[in-house]
Amino acid sequence: MTKKKHIAIIGGGIAGLEAGSVLTRQGYKVTIIEKENKTGGLLNHWSSLFPDFSLPGEVLARIQPENPDLTLIHNTCIESIKKENGRFELFDKRHLKLYADALLLATGLSVFDASLKEEYGYGLFINVITSSDFERIHKAGQKLLTAQGDPPKRVAIIHCVGSRDAKVGNGYCSKVCCITGVKQAIAISRMLPECEVFNFYMDLRLYGSKYDALYLEAQKRHQIQFIRGRLSEVSENQDQSLQLKAEDTLQGRPLRMQADMILLLTGLEAARQNENLCKNNHLELDENRFFKSENMQYHRNCSRQEGIFMAGSCICPMSVNETLDSARSAAIEVDNYLTQKER
């Protein structure tokens, strides 16, 4: 029997874990290299998942792979990849870390730094928070409170913060923020039934199965109000409440609103290490700094470098279920590649 082929997976979020789990079951040796001290990636930070409010822990519990052929390396950030004699060499700040017969990228996402959208005052005005902040509060079982310690009477949820915005260099749609906005609006309304919640959107992109049902629920059961207009600026009043300027584009009139808190639905960006990983090989990034696929329709999981594959949100922002699908299809591509090489 030939020696088991070895696959390295960069990133121990749900894409890397799920792909690793499938590949070990197929008889490969897998090493997952995770930059944090814990696997699970961004899912560790979310409180509940759209559209069913299920718990991220349930997903994580199902995909934590346990297999003698799977090795997990924590606290390690791969900085460069070299192809040498048909194998891949992975380096961590110039030290060789390991060899692999195939490589799977699952570097996932990073959250847009909302303070770069200066006109919204994140980091400057204390009652401006982000969707990530809200998940943290919700996960801790806390109630949403203003900086003064009062339950907010009015919260405005702002879509497209760091997405579809040439000003911050992100021209693309982060895809999952709209539904996150609907989910968080409902979560706030459940938490604080007296609180008015407004969503300021440009286009509601509720593309997924059951997302529109959640939108309906938000409107019907929770009286969430949706205003079609992108937020232009936030200012802080003397009492630290906030003044918003937007246009109600369906009325064609400028709209001023006072709110106690503002929640920014921050967009999702490709991991910053992606750029380094493209050196000394044929990997390429697309115009949005995500990994470019060999063919966006037919070979979504194949990179521009033979032998390197991609899973999950390092291709583009994805929901949890899309990420898992992507991981499984990546595993099939890796298997095809190694099997063909064998022949």
């Binding site: 040439a166 440009m202 992108r230 937020l231 232009s232 246009e247 064609g252 400028p254 709209l255």
Partner: peptide
């Protein structure tokens, strides 16, 4: 003129839009 996606961010801060029946977006 690049291309407009009708977001209304311009009208939102426009002093003329506050004063007149005016909508730069349109």
């Amino acid at each position: 003129m690049n291309a407009c996606m009708n977001c209304g961010i311009c009208t939102a801060v426009c002093p003329a839009a506050e004063y007149f029946e005016y909508d730069p977006r349109s």
